Simulated scan of single mutants.
Amino acid sequence: MRSFLFAVSALAIVGLAFWAYRENYATQQSLRDVRALHEEIGAARTRLAVLNAEWAYLNRPDRLRDLVELNYDRLELLPLAPEAFGRVDQVAYPPKEIDFEAVTQAVEISSDGGTWP
């Protein structure tokens, strides 16, 4: 009986050692994946910073003003002025409630141009 317990204990230890070995390598792979993701995030942040800098450079007011002046004959763009903007109370908002009783005309919808049966 004692030898049976020793054999079962030895098998349990071997099994646990194998499990720990596999978990160790799985953990190391996960850590490598996390490092790679951090590097990708860093590279994406760097690209985003470059793109933001390029956007700011291209949208300088003096550059845009020069482009408008150069292309006025084709585009007929006008400089922005306060008079070009409206007020909020001038916006026509849709009615809050739709009167379904007022909708009286039916519309036929078909993909082949035919009519409904």
Rank of each mutant, 00 (worst) to 15 (best):
R74F: 08
P117T: 10
Y25N: 07
L37T: 05
L80R: 07
N52I: 03
F4V: 13
E101T: 03
L5N: 14
V103F: 15
A56R: 04
D99K: 01
G86M: 04
V34I: 15
Q28R: 09
A84M: 13
L16F: 02
R22F: 14
A12G: 05
V50P: 00
F85S: 05
V91D: 01
V107T: 13
V50W: 06
E97H: 14
R60F: 02
S110T: 14
R60C: 01
P94W: 02
L5P: 02
A49G: 14
F85R: 06
I13V: 08
E97Y: 10
V68A: 06
K96P: 01
I109G: 08
L31P: 02
I98P: 00
E101V: 01
Y21W: 11
E69V: 03
L16T: 00
G114P: 00
R87Q: 13
E108R: 11
V88L: 07
Y57N: 11
A7N: 03
P79F: 15
E23K: 10
P117R: 06
P95I: 02
R47T: 13
V68M: 09
L78P: 01
L16Q: 01
V50L: 14
Q105W: 14
A17P: 01
R60A: 04
D112N: 15
N71F: 08
P95G: 11
L75E: 05
L31Y: 13
V107W: 15
A10I: 04
V103G: 06
Q90A: 12
G15D: 00
I41A: 12
E97M: 06
K96F: 12
R32H: 06
Q105R: 15
Q29H: 10
E39F: 03
I98K: 12
A17T: 06
N59T: 08
Q28L: 07
E23C: 04
Q90G: 10
L5H: 14
S9I: 07
N52C: 03
A106G: 07
E40S: 01
R65H: 03
E76C: 05
R2F: 00
Q28K: 09
E108I: 04
R32A: 08
Q90D: 08
S9E: 15
V103K: 12
H38Y: 12
A44M: 14
L77D: 03
S30C: 02
Q29D: 12
A7G: 04
P79A: 12
